[in-house]
Design a protein around this nucleic acid. Sequence first.
DNA 1: CCATGAATGC
Length: 640
Amino acid sequence: MATLKWRVKGWKSSKFVRVLQTNAFNQTQQIIRKTTTSSTQIPSQLDLPLHFRVTNLNEASGFYISLIQQSKSAEEIRKIQTHMTNHSFPHLRLGNKLLDAYLRLGSLGYAHQLFDELPQRHVVAWNAMISCYIRQRRSAEAVSLYKRMALEGVCPDDFTLSSILKAFSDLGLVFDGQKAHGKAVVFGLEISNVFVGSALVDMYAKLGKMRNAHLVADRVVEKDVVLFTTLVVGYVQNGEDGKAMQAFYQMISEGVKGNEYTFTSLLVSCGNLKDLCLGNLIHGFIIKCGHEFGISSQTSLLTMYSKCGMVDDSLKVFEHVLNPNLVSWTSLIVGLAQNGREEVALSKFCQMIRSSVIPNCLTLSGALIACSSLAILDQGQQIHTIILKLGLHLDKFIGASLIDFYGRCGCVELAKPVYDSLFNRDLVIVNTLMYAYAQNGFEHETLELFQRMKAMGLEPNDVTLVSVLLACGNAGLVDEGIHIFDTFVGKCNIQITKEHYACMVDIYGRAGRLQEAESLINEVGNPDIVLWRILLTACRLHGDITMVGRILKKVAELSPGDEGSLVLSSNIYAAEGNWSQVIGVKSLIWGNGLKKSPAMSWVSIDGEVHTFMAGDFSHPRFKEIDYIIKELMKKVKEFG
DNA sequence: CCATGAATGC
């Protein structure tokens, strides 16, 4: 026995109702007296005729519908369904309603059972099933239903099309999408129905066909916010931020007002373009339209400000967020970590934990980035513990962040187990470990991993190349480095950056092949100043002063009075005893009013930070430290 | 009776 609470609007206990009972073959009327209404004991086989006197089909349908709508569980719906079936109640509309109720309560099993039992599956029933699968991102099942529907001779309508298109873009089924588009055109829905129009725009955008998306959008007769926003989002996600702004402009010039969705997408563009001016403009629009206290607007605003390098403005926006959620905390923490405000990022991370917001993969990788930059092992390990507790250690972003973090802290032995624990080692994961090896002087391991990449079915990219060249430089493998570099330069999918040139200059330079290093820099269009500094370092290493003057001239063209190069040059001249040149360079330094900014290093021991500066002897244990350093230097010299 | 768009990362 189960209790089903009924509270049906407008029904009184004394009222008599007629339910017209029909089945597929004959229609008979039964007059049933209704005895109770407000709360009724229902046998497991719900037996409505005991309680009802039915006179009118519409009223009975309405009663069933009310029952269905008020049901809180699939079991209740099931009883109503059983009752309807027992009394051969007409199914067409109510069947759809039942189906919809099952789907909303997440009971796909019952829904499917009912769907298969329906004597005639109306297009609405198909739509309800398809849209449910779409909502659950089960695109393949949605598509197979759509195809089955065609086989059963049911024609898709505007609802069907507006749902199913998402599945096509999700699965990359361009051809099916185009066929559906064809149907939309034939039915005239492409231009007359904004739902279909928006869905088409969305599909083409997700398939990367922005030209088609924009063409469809232009054809829709009554354009609304959603249509335009879909278009804007499409441009943003395809990296065409300028076009996104143009679409927005088209939108406001057609008199359509933006909403929070529109502004959040536009702000992503401003961030990508690093266009603070545009960002401020959108900020103005947001205030004007009254969305400034919407949490998504605020989050997007603070992200935009961090991407434009204005972290203080991000912090200001964050202060106005009433109840920061996971996303707003995460955006703030990541923004701070990426803008050199690692300490603040970590303190915000702690605040977030204290306000009992549970971090996710993004938050944790942001916090790890902060720990990486600061190279603080213990705090990062605490975060590692949180990651393990939350069971997020297999996430590839987290994995990469952890490997990178341990690499930067100099603990390759801790990075390797993280790598080993990951199942899917994609290019990024392998690159991260390779870089961890390369920067810690594990040349052999770096190159071995590079060799193994091909067997893993991974195509090396520009990041891989940096690690490989770094390793070759450290291992003194000059010819090997040059060979690998040359084979990569030919490949079209690899962008050679200043980082690679820096590695190559270093490789040549360390090997004493200074001429080749110099001509390589000269080959680079618009060379970075760092390249010349690396060459200067190589000149110092080999005690070669012949090209120092030439280099200084080049540097002066690029960046007059670059203190780093000048200081390096004067050191080279000094080491070779060429004092007149030393004075020449020093006078340049003094003449430009340059001052070498003090170099500082620091180390954190038991939570206390010890800082050291050149010429600073104030540390309480300076003598011990100085002695140990001298001993270490002796040993280093012994080993060459 | 059934359908539209978003903010955070290696």
